[in-house]
Nucleic acid binder design. Structure first.
Lengths: 124, 124
DNA sequence: CATACTACTATCCAAAAGGATAGCGATATC
DNA sequence: GATATCGCTATCCTTTTGGATAGTAGTATG
């Protein structure tokens, strides 16, 4: 194994930080993940989502859905029924999150185990 | 290609959300990434880090370092010099973040391009 | 004896994120 | 005509996060 030669220019580092932060930001907030998972099963209407995610208030739900829409993870469709119905569904692009989410999930699981284990047997 | 059959039991989904959230949490906050990158080059002392990350206040720096320590990304070493010096350095375990960070960075870069592009040519 | 350096902590404050509660316009049902 | 359903928005409030500023103990230097 050879040591990688990595150039840590200030610019390259800042760019990395920005990219990672952009990614983290797209997934941040209390409800984005639950929302994405809920919509993974099927498209849902506004009130339907609200009932599924028991504790979310309409204001927050509305805001989170708008952000998911801006990031093109979710498409909002309005139907001229009476009363009007609106559905939210995951876009094909939302699949691009799969790799990231899988890595995060794997790492999160392993990390949790490690931290819990290291609290059981503290430093001697 | 066949459609994957994924079981979305409530428990499995909650476990996923928790794992991903744990991972996101470990990287969250304004300074964790810059700190990790700064320490990637070499171990540093407290005041040294503060000078490197120009705008961070000692209170915040202290808090962020403590969190990185709890997550075992950073090791704190105290030297009985005069005056006492304390260094912070990345642990081998911090390398476990590499995959996650690489995925986040790649996705973040592509996502930024996509969103900027789609704002240039809005829906017709 | 004042000042500076080390690594911080303490107190107070501002901004951001999240939430509770109420209400709106349109229509349908009782 | 009161009530309900739909998809929200408006207003106010709390919690969390981040920050500004000052100060601490111990030692050394001018």
């Amino acid at each position: 194994m050879e040591t990688e030669t990595i150039v840590h220019t200030k610019e390259a580092c800042n760019a990395s930080v920005t990219a990672v932060r952009d990614a983290l930001y797209a997934l941040s907030g209390k409800w984005k993940l639950p929302l994405i998972i809920a919509l993974t099963e099927r498209p849902m209407r506004f009130n339907e989502i609200q009932r599924a995610l028991e504790d979310i208030t309409p204001k927050i739900l509305s805001k989170e859905l708008r952000e998911l829409e801006l990031n093109e993870f979710v498409e909002r469709k309005v139907f001229a029924t009476v009363p009007v119905t609106v559905t939210y569904e995951l876009t094909p692009y939302s699949k691009s999150l799969d790799n990231v989410l899988r890595e995060l999930k794997t790492w999160g699981e392993e990390h949790r185990e490690r931290i819990i284990a290291s609290r059981r047997k503290p430093v001697v």
